[in-house]
Design a protein around this nucleic acid. Structure first.
Length: 265
DNA sequence: ATGGTGGACAATCCA
């Protein structure tokens, strides 16, 4: 199966790039973040007739997540247990025997702000949830904009950027505690030790994308049984500049496994 | 240099 993640910064402004990416790459699942639309205004018609189911949890103006899929989603969960859920940052569904969790982790705004405290609390909720849910044989993939650069090689200027909300000890520790529940970073698994590979470029930095002044903030995190069968994991920047610019790119992976219908007892 | 720009939405908030 092929799974992908894309922070779209408004789904209504990114209809063409998303449609094009789905049609060209035919992923089994595409997770998107920052849809910025409440559920009754989601542009369902724009995605009709291309062979994808779509589920979403959004709100006005900010945040919002969605899942496009070939298979019909089952057992949908639209809020993170332990979190108040009012922020529309979490969406989970089963596709056959594979569970996908799509999150838009709070950015954190400023160090030690209320928003930063909420970011850490969000990770703690995720950690507790995964520890409870994931077993050694689980087939789970956690994907999305996690708003953390895991290592120095995941930012373009680690010395200068150290101590900011997406690259500091607190959020790295918080993310590692979630990963420790039994997940593997598919992109780093396939590109070990390689610097300069990013999923996000701040559009406020002049020519930031051209100069590759990026960050790796988006991830595909899989349990071992899926990571063992992952054959490729890549960052696709081709969607950028399709009509309007987007600050994030599509991250995708191929896993040599097909979702199986769960056994009925 | 504490800016820059893009998006939602209608004066600012968020990234």
């Amino acid at each position: 199966m092929k799974i992908a993640t894309f922070n779209v910064n408004s789904i209504r402004s990114r209809i063409d790039p998303v449609r094009q990416w789905l049609c060209e790459h035919q992923p089994d699942v595409l997770a998107v973040q920052e849809t910025k639309v409440q559920d009754d205004e989601f542009p369902l018609d724009a995605f009709a007739g291309i062979g994808y189911h779509v589920i979403f949890r959004g709100q006005k103006k900010y945040n919002g997540v969605a899942l496009f899929s070939r298979l019909e989603p089952e057992n949908v969960v639209d809020r993170l247990p332990g979190d108040d859920g009012g922020d529309a940052r979490f969406l989970q569904a089963d596709y056959g025997d594979i569970t996908i969790v799509n999150t838009y982790v709070p950015q954190g705004r400023e160090m030690h702000s209320d928003a930063f405290a909420y970011k850490l609390a969000f990770f703690r909720c995720l950690q507790a949830y995964f520890v409870e849910q994931i077993t050694p044989t689980s087939k789970w993939i956690w994907v999305g904009d996690l708003n953390v650069a895991r290592e120095a090689i995941d930012v373009h200027d680690p010395e200068r950027l150290w101590g900011t909300v997406c690259f500091c000890q607190e959020v790295q520790d918080a993310l590692e505690s979630v990963v420790s529940a039994g997940l593997i970073d598919l992109f780093r698994l396939h590109h070990p030790g390689r610097p300069g590979l990013y999923t996000f470029w701040d559009y406020r930095v002049p020519n930031g994308f051209k100069r590759n002044l990026g960050w790796r903030l988006d991830y595909l995190m899989a349990t071992a049984s899926l990571a063992d069968r992952c054959t490729r994991c890549e960052i696709d920047t081709a969607c950028r500049g399709a009509d309007k610019p987007s600050d994030h790119t599509v991250l995708w992976a191929e896993v040599a496994i097909s979702p199986c219908p769960p056994k009925k007892s």
